[in-house]
């Protein structure tokens, strides 16, 4: 899919569910794929008894990766030029995540159009887990 500057307006949004009832197994899968084996994310005994958390929690980068699914589904593959995120709250097993991008600006630089996006990912309680920004190349 291709976004076109002439069809977009500041304030337009796109939203997707990017995790539903997040499993400990998916967190383990992410540890294996990324190589980040921090036991806080995959080792229930360590997370509870040593680190003092109620259970394991997802890598921030799993949430950023899942949020990126919404982004690339909307702006297209190979279109992002910048993507940043702040991890504002932990993501726990069982969480549902909804990621939303909001257009904050549409720019043209030397004939190439870009959209600026604000990104928010919330859990099932409406609490923000990721607060971010992205820029993508779009068509005229």
């Amino acid at each position: 899919m291709t976004l076109r500057a002439r069809q977009l307006n500041v304030g337009d949004t796109h939203s997707e569910t990017v995790a539903h009832n997040l499993t400990r197994t998916q967190i383990v899968q992410y540890a294996g794929a990324s190589g980040d084996y921090m036991p806080l994310h995959t080792d229930e005994v360590y997370a509870r008894e040593v680190a003092g958390y109620p259970t394991v929690f997802a890598h921030g980068m799993l949430s950023m990766g899942a949020t990126g699914v919404m982004l690339t589904n909307w702006v297209g593959d190979g279109r992002l030029t910048d993507y940043s995120a702040r991890f504002t709250r932990q993501v726990w097993p069982g969480d549902d995540l909804t990621a939303t991008a909001t257009v904050t600006a549409i720019d043209s630089i030397e004939g190439q159009y870009f959209i600026q996006l604000d990104i928010t990912t919330v859990n099932q309680n409406g609490e923000t887990v990721i607060d971010g920004k992205a820029t993508a190349r779009i068509d005229p």
């Binding site: 921030g60 992002l80 993507y83 702040r86």
Partner: peptide, 17 residues
């Protein structure tokens, strides 16, 4: 050190796929 450091923010700047 890593056991006490949490990931607070991340940014990627892309120049090609």
């Amino acid at each position: 050190q890593s056991a006490r450091v949490l990931h607070a923010e991340q940014r990627f700047q892309y120049f090609r796929s």
